[in-house]
């Protein structure tokens, strides 16, 4: 992925998430969703570092991760609308989509819930020597779950080809990191397991990519897992309907100054020969793609209620 591809993916994610917020406010979709506006560079930086065949697990805030690895916005939007054409045929909703063909083993509605699962994917890669590395994305809130400790200990002990990327967006729902973490320097947790832990500016896509690539290379060489902390900021609320009364508008305005898309844009504009019109055209294309996704979702059939119990078990 070059800068342009990264930029396009980040803008696509932004447009998708803005559309999700809009669709909720218009009452066109139901349930809940956690959008990742402001965190697009983490998703795209990881995707840019992955090789074909690698795997990814995600969080409850997973739309961006999924889009970054190439998910179809139409099928994602159909899932948001609860339609039969959605990635989970309307059974998963915002927090539960997967496409193993893309190496995307699922967003997960349980905080830290995919960490051991990711270890298992990595164990398979290690046992069968497939060369695959697994990236497990978590949030800062997940760092306080017991599974964080159990999984990192096991991954380090067994030298699993795993990279844990912690998207530190400063808030676990309404709880700021300082109120939830005894040590807010999350990357230091790596030392507890004898593995590398590094912190990068999660709003700079190249920095995320470089850090994840380093960790992937180490994992692929058989040297075991790493912890990469990406410092970012959740510009929207935790979920739809979050009034964000726990933080100031000044803080948010300040965070908007550091948001990743404009930063990448500024950097690319500074390069000689860049064409400002190209950025606007990119945004227009992304908006058109999301509009088409919404049209696809709305035109798709609803799942048949008679099928509700189908697929509880896989065919033995």
């Amino acid at each position: 992925m070059d800068d342009w591809v990264c930029y396009e993916r980040m803008v696509l994610i932004r447009c998708f998430e803005e559309a999700v917020e809009r669709l909720f406010s218009e009452g066109r979709i139901m349930g809940t969703a956690h959008v990742c506006i402001g965190q697009e560079a983490v998703a795209v930086g990881i995707a840019a570092a992955l090789k074909p065949g690698d795997a990814l697990t995600s969080t409850h805030r997973g739309h961006g991760h999924f889009l970054a690895v190439g998910a179809d916005p139409g099928r994602m939007m159909a899932e948001m609308f609860g339609k039969a054409t959605g990635y989970s045929r309307g059974r998963g909703g915002s927090q539960m989509m997967a496409d193993t063909a893309l190496g995307f083993y699922g967003a997960n509605g349980i905080t830290a819930g995919s960490m051991a699962f990711a270890c298992g994917l990595a164990l398979e890669a290690q046992q069968r020597r497939t060369g695959r590395v697994v990236v497990c994305i978590i949030g800062d809130g997940a760092a306080n779950e017991g599974l964080f400790h159990e999984s990192l200990n096991l991954a380090a002990l067994w030298c699993l080809p795993l990279v844990v990327v912690c998207e530190n967006n400063r808030y676990a729902m309404s709880t700021p990191v300082a109120a939830g973490l005894a040590n807010t320097r999350l990357a230091e947790r790596g030392a507890a397991y004898g593995i590398p832990g590094c912190a990068v500016d999660g709003n700079v896509v190249a920095d995320v990519r470089a850090a994840v690539e380093t960790a992937l290379t180490r994992a692929r060489a058989g040297s075991g897992p790493s912890l990469v902390e990406c410092e970012t900021y959740r510009l929207s609320g935790h979920s739809k309907g979050d009034p964000r009364i726990y933080r100031s508008t000044a803080e948010e305005a300040d965070a908007w100054q550091r948001e990743p898309i404009r930063r990448l844009e500024a950097q690319m504009l500074a390069a000689p020969g860049s064409d400002p019109a190209r950025f606007a055209a990119c945004r227009t294309r992304a908006e058109q793609a999301i509009a088409a996704a919404i049209r696809f979702a709305e035109a798709s059939p609803a799942p048949d209620p008679a099928t509700v119990t189908e697929g509880v078990f896989a065919p033995d």
């Binding site: 960490m115 051991a116 699962f117 990711a118 298992g120 159990e150 999984s151």
Partner: peptide, 21 residues
Amino acid sequence: DTPISEQALVGTAIGAAAAGL
């Protein structure tokens, strides 16, 4: 042999199963 980490050992098994083991 695993550490005394029931949650991780079951979760790891689930991931390995999802990957085909």
